[in-house]
Design a protein around this nucleic acid. Structure first.
Lengths: 233, 233
DNA sequence: TGTGACATATAAGTCTGACTTTTTGTTCCC
DNA sequence: GGGAACAAAAAGTCAGACTTATATGTCACA
């Protein structure tokens, strides 16, 4: 799924990043660059580069005479794709998946509404194609093929919204959908109602009906919330 | 507003980051670490650390025998607070402000709905206090005081939503609101209707009326969209 | 006893130079 | 013309020496 770390500093991050995001070092823990360099058997320069990257993600803070301090979770750049991947790979996966699904429920309906206004004819066609692909693979345990078209569908919607902030969430949605298919629920075929909704969204976008596209997408994301038991008490 | 770069590599980033995000180096441009080190009069190690940070933001990619390649805008980590600040400081500011306002319009109503369900009594009190502060400073060109309470209000809503992804957008909202007050429109007192809406949102949250809190917040954000002329054609 | 100035130790920060590794592009031969 | 061998270029890595900021402890003085 994600590329393994390029270069030595990348290898270090592949171990240190997940460890920190997993909460292995509580906030306030102090590490020393020299010690880390010895532990990972790399030179100080390599370790310094790794620390700089962690610092840019606001996972740690480096201060003279003190060392490398692990920051509190509320400081982390939780939108950094790398941080998201690390957290999805760890024990915090369920909580992370919930956070991201709530984010989806806010963003995707608005994105669909914008897409209905701004999508190019090509994007409309792509959307229809994806929806048809979902229909075609919605029966007979063709989960991988279904997932592929599902991800593509949502990516097109987010891109067609014309908002770069939305577009950049395509990867997040892909992770969430893949997570749902591979790890969590979904042992049987997808909900036919959800499939129908996707087809209808594609129709609404093509028909330039923003209000309808938004409402239908909201139904889709509310279904996703319910699957994870995120409801009003 | 933002802290100046810590250490030499931070100083380098303070000029190189804005330059890249401003599109000064078109996508595909190739830089060489040694040359950059000379240009900024720092050692190669310092320059390498700076490049590592830019790489973690997906602004550049470093490859052997090639150099440091500037990546296309669609690759950038546009949610990185540092990247957001750099772009807001450059000529792309208006476009960036629009993107972020659209994001707000998606996120804040949902966050307000969640806040109505999950806010602690303390948060409800804070919210009311902020709204009252806005009312008290809504007349007589007390723009700074008004802004202060406005920012606090939206931060509380985002935090009270209980979703960390929402909570981390507090800084973004602060930038957008500050930008509106300082640079763009708003020479006169804020719209009384908007002030009233904030008060009503605070009431709705305290009354645990999620649906109402969401709808009212949507009205607020739609007002923000209209200010920037983001409308259906 | 408390407080301020000063000394000291510590860990990050910086610089330099030498060496390694990967990758690209060229050249040369079949 | 195509493929293999080769050379050059730039990033990557390492080791060591030195600098700087700063937390903390010490001591004198009030």
């Amino acid at each position: 799924m994600s590329t393994p770390g390029r270069g030595l500093h990348g290898r270090v991050l592949d171990t240190l990043g997940p460890a920190i995001t997993a909460g292995e070092y509580p906030a306030g823990s102090v590490l020393r660059t020299d010690e880390l360099a010895q532990r990972f058997e790399v030179s100080r320069s390599v370790m310094r580069e790794a620390v700089r990257v962690l610092e840019s993600m606001h996972l740690v803070e480096s201060r003279r005479r003190v060392g490398v301090t692990v920051l509190a979770e509320c400081e982390w750049n939780v939108y950094d794709p790398q941080v998201i991947r690390w957290r999805l790979a760890g024990s915090e996966r369920p909580r992370q998946l919930r956070s991201l699904t709530v984010l989806r429920s806010a963003v995707e309906p608005v994105a669909a509404g914008l897409a209905a206004r701004l999508a190019t004819p090509e994007q409309c066609a792509e959307l229809t194609e994806c929806a048809l692909g979902m229909v075609a693979n919605s029966r007979g345990h063709r989960l991988e093929e279904y997932l592929f078209h599902d991800v593509a569908f949502h990516r097109v919607v987010l891109t067609a919204s014309g908002n770069e902030m939305f577009a950049r969430l395509g990867g997040v949605v892909a992770e969430v959908l893949a997570g749902r298919t591979h790890h969590d629920v979904m042992f049987e075929d997808p909900d036919p109602a959800a499939v129908t909704l996707h087809v209808q969204v594609a129709e609404a976008v093509r028909a330039r009906d923003a209000e309808r596209a938004e409402r239908l997408t909201r139904e889709i994301t509310e279904g996703a919330l319910q699957e994870l038991d995120i409801l009003a008490p």
